[in-house]
Amino acid sequence: MTPFIRARTLEGRVTQLLAAEGSSFETTAVPALDLSYEGIPADRHSGLLRKSGPREPWYPRGTEMRNERQLSILGQDELLALARDLDIPCLAAEWIGGNLVLEGVPHVSLLPPRTLLMFDGGVTIRIDGDNGPCRKSGAMIARHVEGRPDLEFAFVKIAQHRRGVLGWVERAGRITAGETVRVRIWEQQPYPDPEPHQR
């Protein structure tokens, strides 16, 4: 068995908060987010429950399930690195539907499931897992960068494991821009690779 990775707590800061009202995919910067246990009120991803989609092929399409995709959390360093690797001047969080942008927390996209984001104001968000890049996000980036239709597909390839994480509200309340966040990563051990006969 491989050794356990110790529990640890990181500290960062919220640099941007955003919300998507109604059916819009793009988000808009806001000074604060008032979160309920359904997520961001009026946001397209709000709700305790959601319908399954192509990311859940083990359910018939449209099956009611727990909404673990209430919030999209991005890392400032990853946005900068993606812009560089895509050869574009910038990659705005709103183009890919981000809700929170954090700085001071390296490799946000690699935060493991169960990680807790605990904000100064009392809100806690629990991480479900990484958010896989899709063509819809790539197409939105291409709309904002003139002469680069290739970005629709390039983003999907380049943003693997760097597109942020998804989370849901464990403790409701208000988050404000500039707020400090403590990132509580639990003790963990990678699950062993199964023996060939178990695959």
Rank of each mutant, 00 (worst) to 15 (best):
R163H: 09
I141M: 02
A172W: 01
P196L: 10
Q76Y: 10
R135K: 09
T28S: 14
A142H: 00
H161N: 13
T15Y: 07
Y191H: 13
R13I: 09
T124M: 14
L74V: 09
E56R: 07
W95N: 02
L91S: 04
A20P: 00
K136C: 09
A32H: 13
G22H: 04
G122H: 11
E38Y: 00
Y191C: 13
E64C: 07
G173Y: 02
A81Y: 02
V14Q: 02
E94A: 11
I73A: 04
Q16R: 12
T27N: 04
T2K: 13
C134N: 02
P106C: 05
A139I: 04
Q160T: 10
V123C: 05
R50Q: 05
T124I: 15
F4C: 05
R8M: 11
V105C: 08
F119S: 06
G75W: 07
Q188R: 15
P112E: 11
D150A: 09
Q70W: 00
V105E: 06
D120N: 11
Y191T: 15
V165W: 04
S24D: 12
G104T: 07
P60H: 08
R162Q: 08
D34P: 03
Q16G: 06
T176N: 08
S23E: 13
A93H: 05
L166N: 03
F4V: 08
Y59D: 09
L91A: 05
A154S: 08
L151R: 01
P106L: 07
A154G: 00
I175E: 04
R184A: 14
R8T: 12
R148S: 07
Q189G: 07
G12Y: 04
D85A: 11
G132F: 12
R162L: 04
L82A: 01
G47T: 01
D85I: 08
N131L: 13
A42S: 11
